[in-house]
Design a protein around this nucleic acid. Structure first.
Lengths: 146, 146
DNA sequence: CTGAATATAGACCTAATAGGTCTATTTTGT
DNA sequence: ACAAAATAGACCTATTAGGTCTATATTCAG
């Protein structure tokens, strides 16, 4: 039920990039230092973000990373699923009906399914752009209330 | 981000008890067999449920377990927190502001906070009684939509 | 009173995972 | 040519999830 560092770090890195002038290329080490992320660790996360098309990488001297898309189009849900795995509160929700023999008669599963949908819908509505913008996030979140 | 067996098994055990005639005492082994829960494992879970006041235990021959409260008053959120820990999507939401030095300026945290509240509110509205009742659960869940 | 059935408490084990660190290689700007 | 960077992947360690077992105390039925 908890989210883990990979996602935390990914969100921080992406927000940091989002706060840069458009097109600015930032090195891994710079992101790690400014965002208080353990040395080296980010390299694995950035690899996923590049592979997922959220971030563009630039090899070589003066290389680094920049956002591959506008920050407003990158949802937290997408970030989560890019660096981790599909969001699923229970394994059967991910692995399908025949994962557990009780699935066909399981009442429990519809509850977790609903909870998961609630969560996913919300997280799909919040973007890296929202997080990067310093002002009024809490207010904008409240507006999402229903 | 996922819920784990302890909660799964706890919900199954409680629902099973809820489906029994009121006051009926059911042994651990019986629950394990009928609900397809690994032998012995349930003993640790039931201990928590007893300690949490959700279940009443009866030691000795012909002993076993029964619900300590009406099934309709036992929410899934409560079950979760009884057999696991307080629901928290990120550690700082649980351990407080000084867990991470970035907390005071962290925009991310308000997003997870909101997500967590959404989840908790929903799970607090669904009861073991809802799950135990065989009919119309999905319909009743839909009614919770907003 | 005795024995069987039960919860209780806690030890124990194993595999997987999270989180982190490091190094060799390739690419590229200056 | 050199330095700075990403890339790829090996490696390590502590924790946790999930499960199994056993010794003990309690209680009911005969």
């Amino acid at each position: 039920m908890n989210v883990g560092r990979r996602v935390d770090y990914a969100v921080r890195a992406l927000s940091y990039l989002a706060g840069m002038p458009p097109g600015k290329i930032v090195s891994r080490v710079d992101i790690e230092e400014k965002q208080d992320i353990p040395s080296y660790y980010l390299s694995k996360i950035m690899k996923d973000l590049v592979a997922g098309g959220l971030v563009q990488s630039h090899i070589g001297s003066k290389g680094g990373f920049s956002l591959a898309r506008p920050a407003a189009t990158i949802s937290i849900k997408e970030v989560y699923e890019t660096v981790e795995r599909p969001m699923a509160l229970m394994e059967c929700l991910d692995k399908g009906e025949n994962y557990c023999s009780y699935c066909p008669v399981c009442n429990q599963i519809s509850v977790w399914d609903k909870a998961q949908t609630l969560l996913a819908n919300y997280l799909a509505k919040v973007s890296i752009g929202d997080i990067a913008a310093q002002h009024g996030l809490r207010e904008r979140l409240s507006a999402l209330d229903n």
